[in-house]
Simulated assay, not measured.
Amino acid sequence: MAQVVLATHNPHKVEEFAAIVAATRPDLTVIGYDGPEPVEDGVTFAENALIKARAAAAHTGLPALADDSGVCVDVLGGAPGVFSAYWAGHRKDAVANLDLLLDQLSDIADPHRTAQFVSTIALVIPGASTAGGAVEHVVEGVWPGRLARAAAGAGGFGYDPIFIPDDQPGGAQRTAGEFSAAEKNEASHRARAFTALVPLLGAL
């Protein structure tokens, strides 16, 4: 069974990715990354995803996946965006990030609380090119929705408890934090990005 390393120290992401990958490529085993964390100094999701995937591939010698993702709020011009994990400071405090974003949007009416979860996945396969270098691919998935006025649901992580995805069955208005793991893994921005990635995984 082939292995692919997921370039993150976030166990929630490893669990979520493993479930998404298993649904379409059960022959692949997703393993966590225990190497050094590179400096994510890119200004786009794609740049940061490539930085992480390249570092993991170089450290392990294995094909590497990296996801850079966040919530992009229309009225904030797409912020927090690439700064989603650090919105309230460099401690990566998910609760503080969520609370700060809700506070910033406290006076914004519901029709203007539109947002998208964006996931960009980079795949780096070391030594796979004809010249012996790495082969790199980048794909993106977008999950449109809007932001709730208060957190709801204990599932997921990050901004999930305040993100209400569009087009829910029966017109439901649940947050992603109220989705089951199976529901989220089928509909999320990461699932959408991975769907775009599947045709590129033939070399693994």
Rank of each mutant, 00 (worst) to 15 (best):
Q3C: 05
V4T: 11
V4S: 06
N10F: 09
H12D: 09
K13F: 05
E15P: 01
E16V: 11
A18F: 07
A19N: 09
A22N: 08
A23R: 15
A23V: 03
T24C: 06
R25T: 07
T29G: 12
V30T: 11
I31K: 06
I31S: 06
Y33W: 11
G35D: 06
G35P: 12
G42H: 08
T44L: 02
F45P: 04
A46I: 10
N48W: 03
A58E: 12
T60P: 02
G61M: 11
L62V: 13
L62S: 12
D68N: 07
G70S: 11
V71M: 14
C72R: 14
V75A: 09
A79P: 04
A79Q: 14
G81I: 03
A85P: 05
W87T: 02
R91S: 04
K92W: 02
K92Q: 06
K92R: 15
A94S: 12
V95D: 11
N97I: 14
N97G: 13
L98G: 08
D99K: 15
L102T: 12
L102G: 11
L102S: 11
R113E: 02
Q116R: 15
F117K: 10
V124M: 12
A128R: 15
A128Y: 11
A128V: 11
S129K: 15
T130L: 09
G132A: 04
G133Q: 13
A134D: 14
V135P: 03
V139H: 05
V142A: 07
R146T: 13
L147N: 13
L147P: 14
L147E: 07
A150Q: 15
A151V: 08
A154V: 08
G155H: 14
G158L: 01
I164E: 01
P165W: 05
D166V: 00
D167G: 06
P169D: 01
G171Y: 00
G171V: 00
G171P: 00
A172I: 06
A172T: 09
A172H: 07
R174E: 01
T175A: 02
E183V: 05
N185C: 01
F194N: 06
A196W: 02
L200C: 04
A203C: 13
